[in-house]
Design a protein around this nucleic acid. Sequence first.
DNA 1: AAATCTGCCAACCGCAATGAC
DNA 2: AGTCATTGCGGTTGGCAGATT
Length: 252
Amino acid sequence: MGRAPCCSKVGLHKGPWTPKEDALLTKYIQAHGEGQWKSLPKKAGLLRCGKSCRLRWMNYLRPDIKRGNITAEEDDLIIRMHSLLGNRWSLIAGRLPGRTDNEIKNYWNTHLSKKKKKGSTNTNADEAPKTQVYLPKPIRVKAMYLARTDSNTFTFDSNSPSGSTSQEEKEECPVTKESNMVSEVGNEGESDGFGFFSVDHDLVNASDIECHSYFHTEDHGTLQKVYEEYFQLLNMDHAQFDINSYEDFLLE
DNA sequence: AAATCTGCCAACCGCAATGAC
DNA sequence: AGTCATTGCGGTTGGCAGATT
């Protein structure tokens, strides 16, 4: 399998991006759309590798990025999604509009992992039953679409299933579809001191999970719904689990 | 005020998956 | 079917800023 040429190529810039580079990249993408990362830097007049350009765009320049602190609702959702999905940052990010996988990963590593660790010290780890966690493996899909609703509106046509630009529909657009079947189940999950579950393995019996007590339903609205979608999936009877419908669900 | 420590986050690296030929 | 190019993901690192000594 061929390896992607990396940023170590002689003559290419590395490190922090300058405002000028940001402007060049943004201008180019607004004119030509995302994709073709390999050839983009040259066409845009950037001395960066495509990988670096993609990362900069995805994590920082994209107009629909939500800047600012993670809200309590988002914090809550991240924790619960992580308890179900593990380190599937892109999957979690796909359900948090405006947040990037990198941002969520950083947030987890710097805030939540400690918080959770601290919480779990209140329980006896030795007695915690092992839990198997259903951890779907993502399948790569083409970029769905990027729709804008603000004054900088530009829509990346390509794969938009409906051509819609509404915020609501955008938020419903999944970025990843899943494969893998729910597998054999271990012991029941245990709520840790943090209000969630000790997740030690890759597979979980969602029906054994109890986390509803953590919800504050009046406040959570949309994010609550997001979590429930996943929870519902995991509650499916294993025998009836149909991978095709699962994929359809995620691609709806 | 200076030196050191700590936390945060943008960016890089390596690998795996996918598509094109 | 096999190979190569490209893209996407997750883990890790390096540098900066603020806190502490």
